[in-house]
Structures are given as C-alpha cells and as structure tokens.
Write a protein that binds this DNA or RNA. Structure first.
Lengths: 395, 395
DNA sequence: CCTGGTATTTCAAGGACTTTAACAAACCCT
DNA sequence: AGGGTTTGTTAAAGTCCTTGAAATACCAGG
C-alpha cells in the first residue's frame, strides 16, 4: 500500500526550493532578480533567500556580479541563473545508419553534438559506434561520465518500458539480443532510459507546440511510426503505442519479409515512388517519367500541377487518413504533426490529408508538418532526460 | 504564469489530514483504529490524532464507541470511519428512453437510486424527467439539494469539456439546444459536470479492474461508443474521444440519416440481426429462420453451433477488430472491455474478436466482457463525482 | 481483590520552517 | 551631502511535526 506520506517540515523546504528552481528555469536564460523570484513564487524574501543559498551551495544556481546592468535606482539586486554545466544530460539517437549523441545542460543549452555514420549494419558494430559517439560527446563537452545526470537513448523498435530491453527491432538485425540499457548503465552512474525513437520525436514536437493537449506525432519516411503525447507526457500503453506502421490498409499489401508493416509497405517513401512509377506507366506524358524518381520528386510534380502526380499524392493522403482515422476518433487529438522525410512534401499532401481526415472524423485535428530539423529524435531524447532530472529536482 | 506556490506550515496540516482521510477511505467500510492509521500513513500519533480531531469536527469522520469489539488486550482503541451521509454526490444518466439518478455518500455507499422511463422523446420533456428523477432521489436519501457536494451527468452525444454544453446528440432531437449544465448549476450550489455516457461507463469499468494501465471500454448495443481511461483518469482529447461508432469500415454502409455512424450501421445490434436475416435467406435450414430474431438469438445460435450464425458472428467480430485495430495500435491498451447489450453474447464473439485482433496488432490486449449490470453509466457518473470530491478534499 | 502485562492515548519539551517587521546597505538624483 | 528608492539582512513570533515519558483502560492470572 503505497500511501502518500507527506510529513515533517523539511518537506516544505524541498517544495519551496523546487518552486524557486522552477521559477528560475522559466526565466532562463535571463538571470533573475531575487525580488522577482519573490513575486513569481509568492514566497517571502527570507524564504527565497534561504532556498537560493541552498541551491547555490548545491551547485544548481550561480550568482551574478551585481556590476552588470541595474537600471533601477536602488540597491543593486543579487541575480541568479541556472548554473551552466549543472546536471548535464546525455541524449542518444541510435539508428540503423547513423548514431547521434548530444549533451544539454540544465537550461537546455547544447554543450555537445556528435553524429557518426554506421558502416556495416550489425548489432555488435552498432554498440561500438554508440560508445564512440558517447566518448566524443563527453570530450567535446569536457565532462566525465560520472557527471551526467540522466541518459535517454532513442532506438527503433519496441521497447519494454519497465526493463528497457528492446523487444522488436526489424530494421537492425540482432539488436534485440543486445542489452543496450544494461551496457550504458554500467558506464553511467545515473538513470538510463531506453525509448522508441518515434516516441521521442513526438516529445520534441510537443515541446515546440506549447499546447498541453493531445498530440499524435507521425514520423513518415521509408518507415512509419508515431508517438502519442498527452498533456506533455508520453503515452506508452503496454509499450508499443504509436506503431501505426502496422495498421492494415483496406487493399492488403503483400509482405516483403523485411519486418515492415502493411501501412509502411503501402505508403512509405519507397511505396510512394513505386505508385508514381505505376502511374507513369499507365499514363505516358507525365512529369513522373523522369529517371531518378523519388518521393520528393513526386511531391514536386504534384505541386507543379502534374495530374498523375496529384492523383498519386491524393491516393497516398487518402490511405493515410483512412488508416489513422480510427485512432483519431478514439484519441481526439488536438493536432496531427508529420515529421520525417515526407514532411518536406509541401502543402499538396497536407491539404489532401486534411480534406480526407475532415471527411472521416468528427472533430478533425489540425494537420501540419513538423518544423524541426533532422535531430528531432535527439532533441526529444534530451528533452525526456531533462524532464527526468527536473522530476527528481534537488535533494 | 500559474506558478506552483507551496508555502507556509498550514499546508502541511492540510497534506497530512488529506493523507489520513485517504487512509480511512482505503479501509472503508471497516472502522479504523487510530494506531492503524499511524502505521498506514507513516505519521506520528499526535499528528494523526490532531488530524482526526479536525476531520471529526468538520464532519468528514465519525468516531465509533469503543464498546464494540476489541479482541486485543489493552486499552480499547478509538476507531473512526467515514461519516455516512457526508459529502453525498449525485449521479445522473440521461438517455433517450430512461433517466436514472443515484446518490452515493463519501464511502461510495448508495443512498438512493431512481429510474424513470421517458414517455415521448423530446428535449423539453426530458428536462422535466431529469428534474423529477433528481427530486425523487433527494427525497429517497432525505437530503436537500444544497447538501450535495458534486453532480455528474451522463448524456449521449459529444460534450464540450470546458463549458459542459452538448455539441452533438443525434439520438435526442433538440438536446443540443438545452443547456443542461446551466440548468443544474442553478439548482445545486456545487460543481456540476456533464460527460459523455460511454466515457463514464469506461470509468466504471476501470474501477472494477484495479489495474491503472490503459483501458479501452466499448459500449456496444444499438449504438457503439467507447471511453479511454489512462492511469485511472478519463481521456477526453478535444472532447469527442472514443467515438468509435463513426469509424468507417471498408465496405461502406449507406447512411440511414438517423445520425448513427458507419460502424454502428455495420455492426450495431440492429445490423447484426439484419446480417442474420440475410444469411438465413441465402442458406435455408439454419436456426436463424426463427420469427422473433434479435442479436441475442444470433449469438445463442452461434453458441449452439449453427454454421450460418457462426459465420455471421465471425463477420461481425472481424469488422469490429479491423475497425478498432488502428486505435489499438496507437493506444496499446492493456485491455478492451466490451459492455452494453452485446456483452451478453458469450464467448463465441469474444474468442472471434481476440483471434482477429491478435492477427492485426502487435501486442494484443486482453479482450473481455464487462461484468457490470445495467447501471454501468450511473456507476461511472457517481465515481467521477466522488473523484471530484476527493480531489478537493477537506478545506 | 489485587498485580502484572499490553495496547493505546495524553502531555510536555524540542526542533524545523515560514512569516512578520524592523533595520541596514547600496545606488540614484538633486 | 542628504533624501528617496530598491533591496538584503536579522531577530522574534507562530505553526506544525517529532520525540519521549507518563497516564489510561482493559485483560489474565494468582
């Protein structure tokens, strides 16, 4: 019986210092006057003073010289801000082709960013690249492994939320037999969390949109995945939440045996190209005849008004909308945000999806592309790591 | 900027009394010894003593005579329990055919239960029946409207979570123009919440299964709705979450113009009967030929091994599984629980759904029928009302 | 009928934290 | 140099929880 035991006056001090620290964060990166903290937290000056003293002592905050900038007439204010390099967190994005590592400090300032290609695919080799990336990132930030306050690793596949073991990862052969979580836990003395990459991308997207509602963030490239964020928190379900790639579209698609799901085979980037090729065969004289055809070219042709291309894009949009409509009806998300390679498709795809989804749902969500660049997943990993640190604030 | 301001020692007293009250609730309906509360909460005896004194004074707890039952040798213990008739809550289930009202006390003890039929359909008439039901329930419990601590109303249709206005209710003509929330707020001096009936049924089902995971609770009768409960809390999304009746199954179904959704028209109770009739036409000599055919008869015939009936049930199960599979993939719920009229179908339907869902999803949820009786929705409404009261515990 | 044992409650002293309120410091302007 | 203003510092008071000892009430057994 985990009773909520809240006792003793010390807990008050903890609550108040936490409130002060949060208030300082919300003002980041600007230093805050102590009097301002009093106003923000609603606490009294002595209380804030004691809390700040404790936080400075513990290394969470740094005091600024009163020399710089004091436009107000009166005694120069003591100003504090989050200490740079305090509680740095490590984020990792392990993919089949590249491994990225990044280090943020408490104020979400990027201290290091590394990106390494993976030569031959293979689980053992991959683990070596991960170690290499971690080492370089630590060196770039000038930090030791023992100084890292939290680690979050993004990986493709399905992750068991409890143990951190990878249960299913078709895109990386042998990856399920590697205990990534265990490996990293041995190197770091802090909590290590393994999480699905689409989930972390969703978290990054949710961070961009300040709204706290329900968000379905889709990663759409060769493969197709999604993450669900509800009220700023990741929804995991039994662990495999968001695996939209395995939705079965109406006209079934033959299994290619490469572990991809039906919807990925139907409207993944590769399938879009294939659809365009077929359309070009049936209808000569379209812009889709060009030699080096890829998904981007299809979208470009559609944007230019090529009729065959427009039809292909509309088909793809319709399939996507039909596939996720049941999920949209059940979840009623505020927005569906699309990232990944297809996110560069432009408004042709977007308006088509919006139109179809409007027809298939009761309260159609906003559909938009993610504005985030290639390091979306890494950003999400760092964000979750920072959330973790903020969750178990100071001691 | 809603900063989390946690200050002053008085908040400690509040926190601790709340912890004590929760501990007492968890032991309900048995009275609790004070020493037991000390063990449960981790607080010290004087603290618990003061908290209990305060709660008794405020009318939340009642002391029991030490006379009754003290098997232990030693000074007879003071025992307390939730005061009956403290903070009673009112639940309402407003449907097109019946209106139910119930009153629970703090310990979830049913003080009153009323069930009234609605003669002619019509929004104005319905409001009158609601008032009548409320009045009778209050009289049965011997309470005044001003003593009610929270009200939750279940209604079909889509409810705006913020205002409590009914946005869409095809089954009750004119219902959207009635401001039910406003009407009841005028009568009661406490928070009034309007909520979709399937959502409240989901909450009731979640209460039965102690698990705190993710739950998709389906109400399946003439109509088809669902509620999503995540971690014991209702998921509302933009307001229309769980409207699975509007999922579009592959072979589209002609609109009947009565406001029902495509899936309802395809596999609702009426559609099941219709499917059986068609099957009987095509294949004479089946048990489905009987005159008064309804969904229950179809399931009974299937359970008895009638081949045509088995085929119909399998079709229905397949349609259902295909329809919700995308939502199951996105949500990854621990369980899908089916309530409503179809829940009396027996294991034929259940195993068929489980089989199809296992084929269509990655981590198939448990599929089972709800064990709750007809007042599921009312139970859920009362549960939400109690949650509301427990959320804003004592003053 | 009295005594020891047990479980519980009551009481008083001590410690931790916040608040209030008065005082001191540092800067600007005239 | 002196008033005005903003900010930081300090001491006393109040509230709450905790610790530890004493008191209470009942049972069992001699």
């Amino acid at each position: 019986m985990a009773e909520e035991r809240a006792v003793g006056t010390p807990v008050l001090r903890r609550l108040n210092t936490a409130a002060v620290l949060r208030a300082v964060r919300d003002c980041a990166p600007e230093p805050v006057r102590l009097a301002e903290l009093v106003r923000l937290t609603g606490l009294t000056r002595p209380t804030v003073g004691q809390a700040v003293d404790g936080l400075v002592e513990a290394g969470w905050l740094q005091q600024h010289d009163p020399a710089a900038a004091s436009p107000q007439g009166g005694r120069p204010a003591v100003r504090v801000s989050l200490r740079g390099r305090a509680a740095p967190v490590l984020g990792l994005d392990v993919g089949p082709h590249t491994v990225s590592a990044g280090i943020d400090d408490l104020a979400a300032h990027r201290l290091a960013a590394v990106r390494l290609p993976v030569g031959r695919t293979g689980a053992g080799r991959l683990l070596g690249v991960v170690d290499e990336a971690v080492g370089r990132a630590l060196a770039e930030a000038g930090l030791g492994a023992d100084e890292i306050a939290a680690v979050v690793v993004a990986t493709p596949g399905i992750v068991d939320p409890a143990s951190g073991r990878i249960l299913l990862a078709p895109s990386v052969p042998g990856w399920t037999s590697v205990n990534l979580s265990e490996h990293l836990r041995g190197r770091f003395g802090c909590p290590v969390q393994v999480e699905n990459d689409a989930n972390l991308a969703a978290l990054a997207v949710a961070g961009e949109r300040s709204g706290a509602g329900t968000l379905l963030a889709v990663q759409w490239g060769e493969r197709l995945g999604a993450g669900v964020v509800i009220g700023g928190r990741l929804h995991r379900g039994t662990g495999s939440a968001g695996e939209i790639g395995f939705i079965r579209p109406p006209g079934d698609v033959p299994d290619t045996g490469d572990g991809r799901g039906p919807l990925e085979r139907a409207i993944g980037a590769e399938a879009i190209t294939e659809r365009a090729r077929r359309a070009a065969r049936d209808r000569p004289g379209t812009a889709l005849q060009a030699g080096g055809l890829d998904a981007a070219a299809v979208f470009a042709a559609a944007a230019a008004g090529d009729e065959a291309a427009v039809r292909v894009v509309d088909e793809v949009a319709a399939s996507f909308a039909q596939a996720i409509a049941p999920a949209v009806l059940v979840l009623a998300p505020d927005a569906v945000v699309i990232g990944g390679g297809v996110a560069r498709a432009g408004s042709v795809l977007l308006t088509a999806i919006t139109r179809h989804l409007g027809r298939l749902t009761l309260t159609p969500p906003v559909v938009e592309f993610s504005g985030l660049a290639e390091d979306t997943v890494l950003t999400g990993a760092l964000r979750l790591a920072l959330d973790e640190v903020w969750g178990r604030l100071p001691v």
